[in-house]
Amino acid sequence: MEKFTKLTARAVPLPLNDVDTDMILPAQFLTSTSREGFGEKLFRRLRDTDASFPLNQEKFSDGQILIGGRNFGCGSSREHAVWAIAGGGFKAVIAKSFADIFYNNSAKNGLLLVTLADAVIDRVLADAHSGQYEVTVDLEKQTVNLPDGSAFSFDYDPFRKHCMLNGLDDIDYILSHKSKIDQFRRQQDNNRFFSTLGN
């Protein structure tokens, strides 16, 4: 997994609530068996039907921080949505709130999700419209710095922070508990009443 430590980049405002995973990546693009190639499909339907959509505007073309509203990433569990955002060049999303599965999936891919107060987000959404709005996100310090000099701290789970700062995958952590897992399975076998195999 790619590390995330600190980033200063152009903010791209997406002033919508409940941005769902079908908006982020329509299901028609889900037939790929790769993790690559989803970046150009990011928000494809909105980009195709709305010329003024931020991702269609040249001034946002090098943006790496997406600013969203409430309940960003709701809907399906498709991790492809995260791959699309990361593939589209974004390293962080700052929003009022996120849907649970999307939040988990992002953390597994080095995409940093930051929640800030509604009033702060509303201000950023308005100001970032200019296309001249650079934001600094510092995961080590858990702060977001805005161009007007204001700074805001954000909550972040300490374990996730450790993984993000060091680019660690969960799978290695789980595998390090293998003997404990094997022991647990042996103890629990008596309460197992199914198998997917055999007749």
Binding site: S76, S77, E79, I101, N105, D169, I181
Partner: peptide
């Protein structure tokens, strides 16, 4: 994400992303 369906039987059932599908394939956890 519609894995919650199985909760009808008193199971804790939830949707996961593809990375987590890999974790469960490899470790059962």
């Amino acid at each position: 994400s519609h894995t919650a369906t199985h909760g009808a039987f008193g199971a804790l059932a939830f949707g996961i992303g593809t990375s987590e599908v890999g974790h469960v394939l490899a470790t059962g956890c």
